[in-house]
């Protein structure tokens, strides 16, 4: 497993304090990684550092191949036509698949002579995505790609993206503050909270490694379990635990789902699920 993106010890300081503090994570090649966290967790800062828009105060970012970036508001030059926007892509990128870009926009029914500002939000998102994809990047970074899009446009953008991953094995890093958006599309999870990486790993492994337990409140947590979150109502206790074998039959055991897992970590900022240091960059 080679890493498409490796970040080690990344720190970025704001005027009011740390935006990112000692962040380390890696995303293996060919994965679709979700970067989730509450607003203000530092997601955009992390993405801007990965794409070179920000210079970090410390730490390193290593990317295998080119990085293409679609920023949150999907900026394009308003006064450019579609054709000029594609010329922009061709002139600024030595590796540029013009036939693909033109073909994809023709398929979507976006005429080359129209101006960017005449397009709908969904169409602009498609043009911005095409601009990023036609570069044939090794790593595609998307900041809240679904924000401000209607459900149809969201589905279209995700379909295009997943098709690209299936076709070319592009590694993708998507940020979102809505976990549900990324449910079916991502297979790698990075949880960022208060400028620190709290969780980083394969989603299936994470889900398999965490259990949701409920039972009478006199029960002790299973031996060796890391309790991520604990909540008590009446005589019942509910635990989200990591890395435990549950032998006591009084526990009602089920697998946690992705939303529960993310929420539990976000509510317990001191907990973390990170690969051992030796695995970072593996």
């Amino acid at each position: 497993m080679t890493a498409a993106l490796t970040v080690t010890g990344l720190s970025v300081r704001h005027r009011r304090g740390w935006a990112l503090r000692d962040c380390s994570l890696s995303v293996p090649a060919g994965r679709v990684a979700a970067l989730v966290g509450p607003n203000g967790a530092g997601k955009t800062t992390l993405l801007h550092t990965v794409t070179g828009l920000l210079t970090p105060h410390g730490g390193t970012v290593t990317v295998a191949g080119d990085v293409a970036f679609m920023a949150q508001d999907k900026p394009l030059y308003d006064t450019f036509t579609i054709a000029e926007t594609l010329t922009f892509g061709r002139r600024l990128n030595p590796r540029w698949d013009g036939a693909y870009a033109a073909g994809r926009l023709a398929e979507l029914g976006i005429e080359p002579e129209r101006k960017i500002k005449e397009l709908s939000g969904g169409q602009q998102a498609q043009v911005a995505l095409t601009l990023a994809l036609a570069r044939r990047p090794g790593l595609l970074v998307l900041d809240e790609p679904l924000a401000n899009l209607d459900p149809l446009a969201r589905h279209d953008v995700m379909r295009a993206l997943m098709g690209e991953v299936a076709e070319r094995g592009t590694t993708v890093l998507i940020s979102s503050h809505v976990v549900a958006d990324l449910h079916d599309t991502c297979d790698w999870l990075v949880v960022l909270n208060g400028g620190r990486v709290q969780v980083s790993g394969d989603i299936d492994d994470l889900l398999a490694g965490h259990l949701m337990l409920s039972g009478p409140d006199e029960l002790r947590p299973p031996a060796g379990a890391q309790v991520i979150e604990e909540s008590r109502t009446g005589r019942q206790v509910r635990l989200l635990v990591r890395g435990a074998q549950v032998l006591d039959p009084r526990w009602n055991v089920r697998q946690a789902d992705l939303d529960e897992l993310v929420l539990a970590y976000l509510r317990s900022p001191e907990a973390s699920a990170l690969p051992r240091l030796s695995e970072v960059g593996a």
Binding site: L53, A71, L92
Partner: peptide, 15 residues
């Protein structure tokens, strides 16, 4: 102002 530096400065051409 338009946020287009995020487009221009993330292309293969260096800043």
């Amino acid at each position: 102002e338009r946020g287009t530096q995020k487009l221009a400065w993330t292309q293969a051409v260096s800043v």
